[in-house]
């Protein structure tokens, strides 16, 4: 790790002034669970850290009939234990609880979960987001067991690491991004992007901008939500594939459906064909299986990760069964 300055402003305006358009000059510090490891591994070496901890408004959870407003510094632990979230946004609470360990949930934040960098081992090993060694892409011929199976036609092969993004996208959430002059609301679906060159970043937040809050519309009556993660280990492990499902039911028929996959593509991956297949149907094991299959249509596994196609299918199937109360999670 290289030496750096540390600033802890008390207002958003002050924080914005401490940032710069240059990512090497300053970066935002929230819980630090990812940033610290990036710096220790010399993946980044910012000259200044701007801690948001003392900006009170970023810690707020507000809810009313219209929806939920989560300050960027609300912790994952709060998400997983907040009674209102548990009642109205159970998928979000589940997703937060799925994050590795109590320690990480205590420190990790909503904004940090969305802005954390990919876990690709070539990226973390110093080969850049596109994993290039003297111009040659390392992932296609390398060890890609944890890489993308969708949206992976290059030059990006990493998977989006966010635990919250799939369910937030399924809930039609928006992210407020505050710049030096103006702020904007970005749908989660547009928040992430797949870089097409080595100079591009994996989300739309510029170096001099700050994610301040996440806005989630209140689900209409008949909302059912769930997430399902396939992980090898019980704890302290990344999902191999994950799915978030949000459906509305009228009687037992699906009226609207959102299905979003995580850890399978450089961005959270919305499975629209699968959603369409689901609308108008009653969910049962066969339907869920078919929808799971549809969700990975177009998958193009790399040399070592075909298994993830199957895992993604199962994640969708089980998330859907769980959302509709038909799956007591099969505990192997």
């Amino acid at each position: 790790m290289q030496a750096f300055d540390y600033a802890r402003p008390h207002s958003l305006a002050e924080a914005l002034k401490l940032l710069s358009t240059d990512r090497d000059a300053a970066v935002v510090l929230a819980g630090g669970t990812d940033l610290l490891s990036l710096m220790k591994d010399n993946v980044i070496a910012p000259k200044r850290l701007v801690s948001l901890k003392s900006i009170e408004e970023l810690h707020r959870v507000e809810h009313n009939a219209h929806g939920l407003r989560l300050g960027a510094l609300v912790t994952l632990d709060t998400l997983s234990t907040h009674p209102v979230i548990a009642q109205h946004y159970p998928g979000l609470a589940e997703a937060a609880l799925g994050v590795s360990s109590p320690q990480i949930r205590n420190m990790g934040t909503v904004g940090g979960d969305l802005c954390q960098r990919p876990r690709c081992w070539y990226f973390r090993g110093g080969y850049g987001l596109l994993a290039l060694d003297q111009g040659k892409a390392l992932v296609p011929d390398g060890d890609n067991r944890y890489h993308a199976i969708l949206g992976n036609h290059g030059p990006a092969y990493f998977v989006n690491p966010s635990s919250l993004a799939p369910i937030l996208m399924a809930l039609d959430a928006k992210v407020r991004v505050q710049g030096p002059k103006t702020s904007r609301e970005v749908p989660v679906a547009e928040f992430f992007r797949t870089p097409t060159s080595a100079t591009e970043y994996e989300n739309v937040v510029a170096a001099n901008e700050i994610v301040t809050e996440v806005l989630i519309p209140a689900p209409a009556a008949g909302s059912h939500q769930a997430v399902y993660e396939v992980r090898q280990k019980e704890a302290l492990d990344w999902p191999l594939a994950a799915a978030a499902v949000h459906v509305h039911l009228a009687g037992n028929k699906v009226t609207t459906a959102r299905i979003v996959l995580g850890h399978v593509a450089p961005t959270p991956w919305r499975a629209e064909a699968a959603e369409q297949m689901l609308v108008g149907k009653a969910v049962n094991e066969d339907v869920a299986t078919a929808v799971g299959r549809a969700a990975v249509m177009g998958a193009s596994p790399l040399s070592r990760n075909a298994y993830k196609v199957q895992l993604a299918r199962v994640a969708v199937k089980r998330a859907l069964l769980r959302a509709t109360g038909q799956l007591a999670v099969p505990k192997a």
Partner: peptide
């Protein structure tokens, strides 16, 4: 886990060098 192209260990950490936890 060794990388053929670069010759380096890909999991020289306790993130992808996985160990059993109590739950496992």
């Amino acid at each position: 886990i060794m990388d053929r192209a670069t010759g380096r260990m890909l999991n020289p950490n306790m993130e992808f060098y996985k160990l059993a936890g109590l739950g496992d």
